[in-house]
Amino acid sequence: TTFEIRVGDLRITLHNADEEEIRWAEEALRRGIHADEILRTLEERRR
């Protein structure tokens, strides 16, 4: 599944994310964390 998060002009697309990952990514985007860093962190958490 694919889920797109939008916060203002910012956007990130997550693939195969669970609800916790989606909530975490949305909050991180709101705090101004760059999408590349969010994706990198999620990848590390999945390992």
Rank of each mutant, 00 (worst) to 15 (best):
I33T: 09
E20Q: 11
R23H: 08
L29E: 01
R46I: 04
I5A: 02
L39T: 06
E37P: 01
E4M: 02
R31P: 00
A17V: 14
R30Q: 07
V7W: 11
A35C: 03
T13E: 05
R46P: 02
H15R: 06
E4K: 01
W24L: 06
T2S: 15
D18M: 08
I33D: 07
E26H: 10
I5G: 01
A25H: 00
E37V: 13
E44S: 14
W24N: 01
E37W: 13
A28Q: 10
E43R: 11
G32Y: 04
D36N: 07
I5S: 01
A25T: 07
L42M: 05
T1M: 11
R45Q: 07
L39V: 06
T13H: 06
R45I: 10
I38F: 05
L29I: 06
E44G: 10
T13M: 05
T2N: 12
R46K: 07
A25Q: 00
E21F: 10
G8S: 02
E21Q: 06
R23N: 07
R45K: 07
R47T: 13
T2E: 15
T41W: 13
F3E: 14
L14P: 00
T1S: 10
R40K: 12
L10F: 08
T41E: 12
E37S: 08
R11F: 13
I5M: 04
I38W: 01
L14T: 01
E26A: 14
F3R: 14
D36A: 08
A17W: 02
I12W: 06
E44V: 13
L10D: 09
A35F: 05
R31S: 11
D18H: 09
E19M: 11
A25F: 04
I22E: 02
R31H: 08
H34V: 10
D18C: 08
E26Q: 12
A17K: 02
E37D: 10
R47E: 10
L39Q: 06
L42Q: 01
E26G: 14
E21P: 00
D18F: 12
A17I: 05
D9F: 07
E21R: 01
A25I: 07
D18T: 14
L14D: 00
E20H: 10
E44L: 15
A25P: 00
R6E: 14
R6T: 14
A25E: 00
I5R: 00
T13L: 06
I22G: 03
I38Q: 00
E4R: 00
H15F: 14
R23W: 07
A17M: 05
A25Y: 02
R6I: 15
R45H: 06
W24T: 02
A28G: 06
E27C: 15
L10V: 15
T1D: 15
I12H: 01
R23Q: 10
G32Q: 03
F3C: 15
A17Q: 02
L39K: 06
E27P: 00
E37M: 13
L10C: 05
L14N: 00
A35V: 12
L14A: 00
R46S: 04
A25W: 04
R30D: 02
R11W: 10
A17F: 04
F3T: 15
N16V: 06
H34L: 12
T2G: 15
E4T: 04
I5H: 01
R47S: 11
E26F: 15
E21G: 06
D18I: 12
D9P: 07
E20L: 11
L14Y: 02
L14I: 10
L10M: 13
A25V: 12
L29W: 04
E4F: 04
E4C: 12
L14V: 09
R23S: 08
L42E: 00
R30T: 10
E21M: 09
W24P: 00
L42R: 01
G8C: 03
T1V: 10
I12A: 01
L42K: 00
R23A: 11
E43F: 14
D18E: 06
T2Q: 11
V7Q: 03
E19Q: 12
R23F: 07
R40T: 09
I38N: 00
A35P: 15
I38R: 00
H34T: 12
F3H: 15
L39Y: 15
R6W: 15
E43M: 15
T13A: 02
R46V: 04
D18K: 11
D9M: 08
I38H: 00
F3M: 14
R46C: 04
E20V: 11
D18Q: 08
D18G: 07
V7L: 05
I22T: 03
D9G: 05
I22W: 04
E21S: 08
R11V: 15
R45N: 09
R23Y: 07
R45S: 07
V7Y: 12
T1I: 14
R11N: 07
I12S: 01
E37F: 13
G32A: 03
L14R: 01
E19P: 09
L39P: 01
L14G: 01
E37T: 10
R11Y: 12
L10Y: 12
W24V: 02
A17H: 02
F3Y: 10
T13F: 03
E37R: 07
I38M: 06
R31F: 13
E19H: 10
E19Y: 10
R31A: 11
D18S: 13
E44P: 01
H15Y: 15
T1L: 15
N16W: 05
I5F: 02
R6N: 13
R11L: 11
R46E: 02
R40P: 02
N16D: 08
V7I: 11
A25N: 00
R40A: 08
E26I: 15
E44I: 14
R23D: 03
T41H: 07
A28E: 09
T41I: 09
R46Q: 04
R11P: 02
T41K: 08
L42P: 00
R6C: 12
W24M: 06
T13G: 02
R40H: 12
V7T: 02
R47A: 09
R6V: 15
R23P: 01
D9V: 07
N16A: 05
D18Y: 08
R23E: 11
D36T: 10
L10S: 08
A25G: 02
T13Y: 04
E37Q: 08
D9Y: 07
L29C: 04
G8P: 01
A25C: 03
E26D: 04
I12P: 00
E4P: 11
H15W: 14
E43G: 09
R23G: 07
R30G: 06
G32C: 07
E26C: 12
E44A: 14
E26Y: 15
E44K: 13
G32R: 03
R30V: 07
I5K: 01
T13S: 04
H15A: 05
A28R: 07
I22M: 06
G32W: 04
D36M: 11
E27W: 15
E21A: 07
R11Q: 07
R40C: 08
